[in-house]
Design a protein around this nucleic acid. Structure first.
Ligand SMILES: [Mn+2]
Ligand SMILES: [Mn+2]
Ligand SMILES: [Mn+2]
Ligand SMILES: [Mn+2]
Lengths: 225, 225
DNA sequence: ACATATTTTTAGATTTGTCTAAATTTATTT
DNA sequence: AAATAAATTTAGACAAATCTAAAAATATGT
């Protein structure tokens, strides 16, 4: 199967990426309103775009019934996601951006069209498998590594693990983590879980910290025994 | 004087850059047709754009009389040129692109909007003064280094110099130079000049080469004594 | 089942950037 | 000074991407 990479507009690329994320990897059907909310646009604009994407065979669109990505659409979405995440790694590793600053710039850089550029960037970064937020970077064929990961909130007192990703990668959350010394690779042990509000006490090295349920449901952990 | 950097579209940025180049640094008046030819678009499209740029006070436009950049327009053009040339250096220095491959990609990258990105890129590249084609890179204030440079065609037999830039930076010309071992920094001595067609014999290290007038008028040389 | 609420689409307008064809202005010849 | 040629602008159209307001389809509640 070939993706002739018929040039897409930035807007088309953004919609495909949005649909991909909303459908949990392009399989499940996504509603017009869900797309509109995610893209911060109006449902009528989404309908227009879905027609265009459908004409280009990038999505399967049945009016009133939602939309799914075609294999071509999925491939394109993955190409954009690959570029986005590689650029995020570049910004952190080579230009000393912090992980809460990279997303906005990567939103622009992900639309630069040059196969060679991305291949060389990949090499410069030593073929990273994950981006600064722990999200997997698809390879050229759209395949990526999966890892066992659980939300910190699912760990029981006594269990421990390593932080390997964030579910929410908004700046405020990431800056909160920075402030409290939590980064990818940080070892966390659960000390106690509060029945009342599901907050938990955790141990990180010497430091001890009380975190809300909100926090615990946005941190991915790889358990260690 | 402040440039509030009111966000511009890619097309507006491209026009400002085009006008800057055509007017030999923003001073001289430029015609609608000259812009159309340079941008590979139609004169009527240029007229439309000139009105828009004029409304934004980026150019002084008098119908039928040509156009010049305002100080704000010049500043914006220089910002785009700075980004373009820094990215070209990045592509050559960090991603091993050859100098004939960088322009097309830089045409896209020059529109990425992030002050911090460009500052950090500048630092990563160790604050280069010139791009891979020998063109000067403006600093944040739009100032750049000038160098004494002469076209190779103006040298007389017996004179020598170092290649410091190209006037034509098209791929075919640059690949011709590669093929013949001419790069920035190459020392060239003029041996003989043919009266008939202005071609010249030049010496580079051991190697001797016969080059046409066309070639000689597109190579910038810093004379050495 | 019917009324109401929600979701989605359609209709029509707007902005940006482009085009072709026609009109207008400016420049050049004779 | 006309006549002709060249450059430039205007008029009208179109595609992409968006919006608001109205209509239509679907879902929900009693
Ligand atoms: Mn991101
Ligand atoms: Mn990320
Ligand atoms: Mn260039
Ligand atoms: Mn250059």
């Amino acid at each position: 199967m070939e993706y002739p990479s018929a040039s897409m507009t930035q807007s088309e690329e953004n919609y495909l990426k949005g649909i991909y994320h909303l459908s949990h990897a392009g399989r499940a059907s996504v509603s017009t309103n869900a797309i509109a909310a995610h893209m911060e646009t109006k449902p009528s604009s989404v309908t227009d775009m879905l027609k265009r994407l459908s004409d280009k065979d990038l999505v399967d669109y049945q009016p009133y019934k939602g939309v799914t990505l075609t294999s071509g659409g999925t491939a394109q979405a993955l190409r954009v996601i690959r570029k986005h995440r590689l650029w995020e790694v570049f910004l952190v590793e080579k230009l000393d951006f912090s992980w809460d600053e990279v997303h906005e710039v990567a939103e622009q850089l992900e639309h630069i069209a040059s196969e060679k550029l991305i291949d060389r960037l990949d090499a410069l970064l030593d073929y990273p498998d994950f981006d600064p937020h722990g999200d997997p970077i698809p390879d050229k064929e759209g395949h990526f590594k999966t890892r066992e990961k659980r939300l910190l909130s699912t760990l029981q007192p006594g269990e421990k693990g390593v932080c390997i990703g964030v579910k929410d990668s908004s700046s405020p959350f990431l800056r909160f983590l920075d402030k409290n010394g939590i980064a990818l690779g940080t070892r966390i042990a659960v000390l106690e879980k509060e029945e009342f509000d599901d907050s938990m006490a955790i141990q990180m090295g010497e430091q001890q910290l009380q975190i809300s349920h909100q926090i615990a449901t946005n941190l991915y952990i790889k358990p260690i025994t």
